[in-house]
Amino acid sequence: MCNPFGVFLRGRLLTRRQPTYVIIPPVDDHARLYRMLFLIRRFEETVLAEFKRGVFSGTTHTSLGQEANAVGVISALSPQDAIFSNHRCHGHFLAYGGDLRALFAELMGRATGVGGGRGGSQHLHWRNFYASGIQGGGAAMAVGRALAFRRAGSQNLVTLFIGDGTFGEGLLYEALNLAALWSAPLLIVVEDNRIAQTTPSELALAGSMTGRFSAFGIPCNELDSSDVLEIQAAATGEAAQIRTTGKPRALILHTCRFGPHSKGDDTRPAGEVQRLQAERDPLRIHAPRLAQAERTQLEQEVEAQVQSAFEQALADPFPQLVEGRP
């Protein structure tokens, strides 16, 4: 892959036919991308830290380590595109432009939450963003939503985020078949963090991931990177192809989960996670592209923003059941 940015690229493309993406981001893009990466990182860290204090209830699945997938892919989409996300959806939601305080509030079960406290961490909806907690459950809906775009004559597409664990669900394959058969403008983004809850891919996945897409005639590219610019470039290329051809494509992002699946349920040796953090931290990869002073100022701003949103959500009221709401 040619390097349009003139910086060292840590990731590598695994596909033999390497797509050529030449996307020149606007000058302020590095800062904008870093801001969002840092925002997601600090949101998720706050969630895990405060869970221990009982501020949040229920469960949660953080995007720690996978921030660049959310930011890279979603920054490559149009605001009118639809997104179907999954249990690990905070990063996607924030990168889509979702409100920080409303997300904190939703995880705290407050009335001001994204879903008024009814959905919680995994069930977020705002504009054209839908997340739900059933593995693969959004796959066929994403196809249907994409068909609705196409039938209405729109150029919009749908992005479906799945994980390596989702390959175990049968509905996914029904959806892939339908998407290819009916030419749905659908981008399937696989976030392959190589572990489903506690089960490594080797114990859950026979055959190849790419083979699963090629069986349905869905073009598939792979990227082993935590560099937001590489991911953004790849997603931009995929999205452009989909808008031109009107057909589904898949992008497999080999990634790393820094946190537990949920909370405190990480069975990996501590050394392994530390190694991933040292080698594949999307923030550390992107940070050198910003001047030190700019980065420090930006981090302080985000820190204050996260703290303020958290405090506001903490002061928000709990909801009450409303009679007559269907």
Binding site: A82, Y130, G137, G138, A139, A140, M141, A142, V143, G144, R145, A146, L147, A148, F149, R151, A152, V158, G170, L171, E174, A175, N177, L178
Partner: peptide
């Protein structure tokens, strides 16, 4: 694909 077409139907419904 009963699950798939039901899901596709839901997606179409979300799309108007």
């Amino acid at each position: 694909s009963e699950a798939g077409i039901t899901g596709a139907g839901i997606g179409l419904a979300l799309g108007g």
